[in-house]
Amino acid sequence: MFCTLLNLVLFISGPIVVEAAKVNKKGKTVKVDCGRVRGIYNVTSRAYSFRGIPYASPPVGNLRWRPPFPVNSTNKNCWRGRLNARKFGSPCLKEKPPFTANTTIGNENCLYLNVWTPSLSRILVTRQQSSWLVTMMLSIINYRLNAFGFMSLDMLRVGSHTNTSGYYGFMDMLTGLHWVQNNIRQFGGDPNQVTPFGQSSGGTAIYALLASPLGRGLFHKA
Rank of each mutant, 00 (worst) to 15 (best):
K87M: 11
T164N: 05
F187P: 04
N109C: 03
N114A: 12
L120S: 08
V23Y: 03
F219L: 07
D33I: 15
Q193H: 02
V180F: 05
S200E: 10
Y55T: 03
Q129I: 09
R185M: 01
R38H: 15
L177S: 08
G159M: 04
L214D: 02
T29P: 08
V30Q: 13
K28L: 05
N7V: 06
I184G: 05
L210T: 05
F50E: 15
C110F: 01
Y207G: 02
V37I: 15
S121I: 07
W179R: 03
F2S: 09
D33Y: 14
W179G: 09
V43R: 11
N7K: 15
W65M: 13
I141M: 14
V60T: 15
G176V: 09
A101K: 14
E108Y: 08
V32N: 11
P68W: 14
S119L: 03
S152Y: 00
C34G: 01
F219V: 08
V30G: 08
L6S: 08
T164A: 11
S212P: 10
T117A: 12
I40N: 15
F148C: 01
V60C: 14
L214I: 04
G27S: 03
L93Q: 05
T104Y: 06
F11C: 03
T162M: 06
N114K: 12
L174I: 01
S45Q: 14
H178E: 10
K76A: 10
T204A: 14
W179M: 07
L214A: 12
S73V: 12
V194K: 03
W116F: 06
P191K: 03
G27I: 04
G198F: 05
N84T: 03
